[in-house]
Structure formats: C-alpha cells, structure tokens
Design a protein around this nucleic acid. Sequence first.
DNA 1: ATAGCCCCTCACGTCGCGTGAGGGTCAAGC
DNA 2: GCTTGACCCTCACGCGACGTGAGGGGCTAT
Lengths: 255, 255
Amino acid sequence: MALTVSQVAEIAGVSVRTLHHYDEIGLLRPSGRSAAGYRLYNDADLARLQQVMFFRELEIPLQEIRRALSDPEFDIAAALRMQRQLLSEKAARLHALLSAVDAALARLGNEEPMTREEMIQMFDGFDPSAYEAEVEQRWGQSEAYQESKRRTARYTKQDWQQIKSEAEATFARLADLMTAGVAPDAPEAMDAAEAHRQHIDRWFYPCSHAFHRGLGRLYVDDPRFTANIDKTRPGLAAYAAAAFAANADRAKPPA
Amino acid sequence: MALTVSQVAEIAGVSVRTLHHYDEIGLLRPSGRSAAGYRLYNDADLARLQQVMFFRELEIPLQEIRRALSDPEFDIAAALRMQRQLLSEKAARLHALLSAVDAALARLGNEEPMTREEMIQMFDGFDPSAYEAEVEQRWGQSEAYQESKRRTARYTKQDWQQIKSEAEATFARLADLMTAGVAPDAPEAMDAAEAHRQHIDRWFYPCSHAFHRGLGRLYVDDPRFTANIDKTRPGLAAYAAAAFAANADRAKPPA
DNA sequence: ATAGCCCCTCACGTCGCGTGAGGGTCAAGC
DNA sequence: GCTTGACCCTCACGCGACGTGAGGGGCTAT
C-alpha cells in the first residue's frame, strides 16, 4: 500500500518536486522510507495531502496550512471567513478586469486597430489632475482615499458613464426634493441621501454613514465641490449635506 | 514637468521600488536623469506607465508587456482574447472556491465542528477510481486529459450536481430527438451535440470539434461508456456519436 | 551486464517586487 | 555655514512555491 513520490504525484495531480518541497518544509513528511531512502506514502499521508490541497486551493500560505493542520485548536471557521472575504474581493477585481477587457475588445472589433493611446483613455475617463493634489491634502492618506484611487484606476469608460449618470440621478432627486420644499431630514430626502451613499460605496470606497456625513461637509466647505453641485440648483450642496447628516443620524442616532 | 520617483509613485499608486524595478528590467526607463542621478519622468513616461499598469492588471508577465509595448506589430487583440480566456477561467475557479468555502462554513455553523475529513468529501463528490486507470491508458498523457484532471479536482459538490444535471439534460435532448426519428445529422441533433461539446468545454477541458468527434467514437467503442449512456435509451451512444460527427463536419466540413 | 526508468540530495533560477544597508542630494531652519 | 530631515541613489539579499537541471545511486527486465 506504500506509494512512491511519482505515484502520489500522479494521483494527486501535483509534481514530484512539490512533494519534495512539502517534505522539506515539514508540511507533509512521508510516514516511511524504503531501505534505499525512497519516500513512501501511506493512506494517512494521502489524506493529509488532500487537506493540504484543499487549503492551498484557497490560497492559504503553506506555513499557515502547516500550523492549521498541526494545531487541534485552530479556528477553521475564522480562517475560512477571512479567506472567503479575500476570495470575494479577488473575484470582484477579476470581473472588473473582464469587463475592461471586453470593452477593449469591443472597440477593437469595430473600428481601426485602436491605438494604445485610445486604450488608455478608458482609464482616465475623468481628469483627476486638477483636484487631485488638494483632495490628497484634505483626505491625506486616508484609507478611503487610497481605496478610491485603487478602484477608480480600474474603471472603464463605460463604467464612468454609468457612474456619472447615476450620480446625476441622485443629485437630481435631491434637487427635486429641495425645490418641492421637502425638509432635508424628511424620509424621502434621507432615502435619496442613502442612495448617494450607496453609490459612493459601490463605486469608490466603503462609505460609512459617518464618512458620508463628512463628505456632505466637504461639499459645502470646498468651493470647487460647492460650485459644481450648485450648478444643478443653487443651494443644493448645503441641502445635500443636511440630508446626508440626517441620514447618518437615522442610521445611528447621535448620543 | 519632470517628476521624481516618489511623485510618480504617488500618482500611479505603485511603490518606488516598483519603478526602480521597471527601470532595471527595461520596462520603463525614465526619459531623463538629474545632475545628481535622480530619475526624471515626463508625461510620455507616465503614459507608458499607464499602459504597463493596464497590462499588469491583466496579469500579463512584465517581460511580455515589454515586448508588447516595443513591438509595433504586436497583436493586441489576440493578446486580449487570450487574457480574457485566462481571466474568465480564474474567475470561474474563484466562484467554485467561494461556494466551496460557503458550503464549509454552512456546515460549520450548523453542527459540530466539522472534521477535516468531511471537508475533503466535497472534493471527491464523484468516484473516478473505477475508470481512471483505463481512461488514462486510452487518453494517455493527452493535454485534454491532464487539463480535465486539473479542473475537476477543483469542483465542489454543488458544481458536480450542476454538471450532472446539465449532462443529463443534453443527453435527454438527444434521446428525444432519436425517439422522434430525427436523423443524427439534422440541425436539431447537431445543435444538441454542440450543446454537449460546450458543456465539456466549459467544465472539463477545451474541447474542439475534432476532439468531440473522438469522444463520440469513445462512447461507442468503450462498453462502459456505451452501457452507461444506453441506460437512458438503447442506441443513444451510437446516435450521439453520429450527431457529434455531423456537428464536427458542420463546423469544419471534411476535405 | 546493460538499458531505461525510477529515486535521492544539493543547489541555483524564477517573478515581482519588499526591505534594508550604506551613502550622496537638497531645501529649510538655526 | 551647519545641521536636520526628507528625499534620492546603487547594491544585494529575502520571499513563496516551487521549476529545473546536475550528479549519483537503485530497481527491474531483458
């Protein structure tokens, strides 16, 4: 019943070198050796290899796998949850990439052999250079800002169009409410604020209610934002800020 | 307008070391140096960095990116298609992993602290040991077989259920056509054959029309396959083989 | 006894950087 | 004019999970 390296390798679909490696780092030591020093694996070794491969497939570092398998107290659930989180982020990133590639291919299909410059256009569908430096100062190295930069770098032109129209829609909704004389802490206004928060959360960075309230303040404090927003309707920036704050209070009432 | 490493790093969201590295390997050499030897990047350099980051995000090796950017004849479309394929496979794999993790977590939530052995069960939802040796002989070390082994090792129990029901559906479709007296080279039969081919292609290995034809032959030549398929309806294996061949001819007519 | 395939142990290579070590540069404040 | 601190430079080793020989022994069959 004792199997040699190549047999185990074949069964498990890994390379011989991989088995050597796992032996070296103490992740999977064969239970026996032949007289000539050949590694000999029994059923228990195979079972352990299965476990190793499971965790490896989840992209858990080998060292951690080793610890996990040796520690009977190891919290598998916690590890799985962490890993799940990591995997779903990776998946989301992959989907964004796929649509970026599709967009690129679509263009390639239609017209002339798209230049590389055109391709890049997809990636700077908006012009960050004007605001970027100052935004940086205000938001500093905040997590949110970093995350936003990471995310936005990946959006395609199509994405940007959708983002823009969505953003306009939420502000239009707020503008209508304002014109109708609805108070910014009315439920409808708060709902519109919430829609905006989710928009940010979806497209830019994880946006808590508290953070959203801060964003509202920025809209009135920073003349560039104020000017841009008040183009839709004068006073909208202040109205939006009040609605954001009310919505934040609704979610987590002030102490 | 000339930027130093840290400025470029900040803008692009990469590390200084990364820029050093890209310089070292000739992927992105700054267009200038200051008197003191500082790297100085201009707008063209930034543009090139954008391109590099685009391809890098697609997980293309840096060396290939370098070649791509230096070769004006480089077929971007082909590269994108290849990369798309690769990415979508990765995404599929990730989703399988996610559901595997979810399944594991679900069990963990309910019952006793699930044993590792239970966890592994997910991974051998089917029993390949019975056929494996012989299949190996027939298909030998073929690329397809290796690829299939690699892929199938990763499917979860859920996946297998879906695969199984999909497979049954395609064979049921063929069985219906056969009973209805439709010729195996009729369009409907060829469409059903094509559905089966895509099923294989999706779940097991890249399955060309030619390869699919060979698969059909295997279904009639190998009594184990024949018996299993003819359980649904006697003669179905032969009918399927004929339909596969017809479908292959349709895709690429015989010389 | 020879051939051919298996096995072993070093040990260096790969990729995309991270992370110092050791030292020069530059603008600002004292 | 000198120090401070934030930049910049060039080596050069480290990492993670193996790949890929090199050099040598073992096993089995003809």
